[in-house]
């Protein structure tokens, strides 16, 4: 039986408070793009986009008036759903990219033992570049930092364009998954 499906779930998305830095690093040709994407900063219903190329249906959890910039989101559900941080870094490179992702968590209600994060790129189709898991219950408050290298892409047009990150809740009952500020850094 064939039925229609779509691959990527985004129950909500938002992108505010982007600060982009374009700084030569390591060599004359190296460039670093970095910024913090925070949620709900200006609008509790998170419709304040700084990047206009996305939309959302429904909500991802509830709004909290605490956390980084005094806003964050909490999802309590056994149904998996994705929360998204979008940046507009305009990176298109045929080189490998060293990436750093920092997720900010500081709330006793963030207890998901298996929050799943991905960084997506989009040069022709959206595709995850890297992922990592974090136990939000046991991770101490602050930024949890992950890093790695995206290899040069043999994608359709041969470039990498890291575009957005997401977190997905584990689906375990009785826990809360948090989404707050997301720092990204790409050096290529």
């Amino acid at each position: 039986m064939i039925k229609l499906k779509r691959m990527f779930c985004v129950l909500t998305s938002c992108a505010t408070s982007i600060l982009l830095i374009n700084t030569p690093l390591f060599s004359a040709n190296a460039t670093t793009i970095a910024g913090i994407v925070d949620n709900d900063t200006s609008n509790p219903y998170y419709s304040n986009y700084s990047n206009t190329i996305h939309s959302f249906n429904g909500t991802w959890g509830t709004y909290l008036s605490n956390g980084y910039n005094n806003d964050s989101r909490l999802r309590q559900s056994i149904t998996k759903g994705n929360y998204e941080w979008v940046w507009n870094a305009n990176i298109y490179t045929t080189s490998s990219i060293n990436w750093i992702a920092k997720v900010y968590l500081a709330n006793a209600s963030f207890t998901d033992p298996n929050a799943y994060y991905e960084i997506y790129e989009d040069t022709y189709i959206t595709m995850p570049c890297h992922y990592f898991h974090l136990n939000q219950n046991l991770a101490p408050n602050g930024f949890s930092v992950f890093s790695g290298t995206m290899p040069p892409s043999p994608n359709y047009n041969g470039t990498l364009n890291p575009w957005f990150g997401l977190v997905q809740n584990s689906g375990i009952s009785g826990v809360g998954t948090g989404a707050d500020a997301f720092y990204f850094q790409f050096t290529y």
Binding site: M7, P128, H130, Q168
Partner: peptide, 10 residues
Amino acid sequence: VSMLSSKNTS
């Protein structure tokens, strides 16, 4: 690179 096939709709 990584890939997640989600059970959800997009």
